[in-house]
């Protein structure tokens, strides 16, 4: 289950979709829009993506997670567009027979997503300025 959406993420529905009678553990990770970053105040975030590649990369990560851990079901939904404080930007849900694998697979999916999936956030700071977030690039 891999999805990009401009609508609010229904994390309860995603969690239900990965639940299984084969699972003893279900882990859900939510990324949410944070107000303060290193003393700077965020008003909102705008997310953009290269959609075809983002979906392909998320599917690759899903396959790798299933190869490495005994994943029963896993789902990743990333939201795009304009998000307000507290909104859910990404949801990752994983079910496994046991909790250690579910936590590790979930962590792998969100950590790698942040490194390789072509999605970008733009900060809308409280002073009215905007700034693309590109790790390692001076602005």
């Amino acid at each position: 289950m891999i999805e990009l959406t401009h609508e609010p993420i229904d994390h309860a529905a995603l969690t239900e979709r990965v639940r299984s009678t084969q699972a003893g553990a279900v882990v859900l990770f939510l990324g949410t829009v944070r107000e303060m970053t290193n003393g700077q105040q965020t008003i909102a975030l705008d997310y953009d993506a290269y959609p075809e590649m983002a979906v392909a990369k998320m599917e690759e990560l899903h396959t790798r997670a299933c190869d490495k851990w005994p994943v029963i079901e896993a789902g990743i939904i990333h939201r795009l567009g304009h998000l307000e404080l507290g909104d859910i930007s990404v949801a990752v849900a994983v079910s496994c027979p046991h909790r250690v694998d579910a936590f590790e697979a979930g962590r792998f999916l969100i950590d790698r997503l942040k490194e390789v999936v072509p999605i970008w956030k733009q900060e809308n700071w409280a002073d009215g300025s905007t700034e693309w977030v590109h790790p390692g690039v001076e602005t």
Binding site: V90, K114, V116, P118, I119, K121, H134, P135, G136, V137
Partner: peptide, 10 residues
Amino acid sequence: VACFPPVSGG
């Protein structure tokens, strides 16, 4: 072909 700066999803 696509060109873009480092990603920041999540």
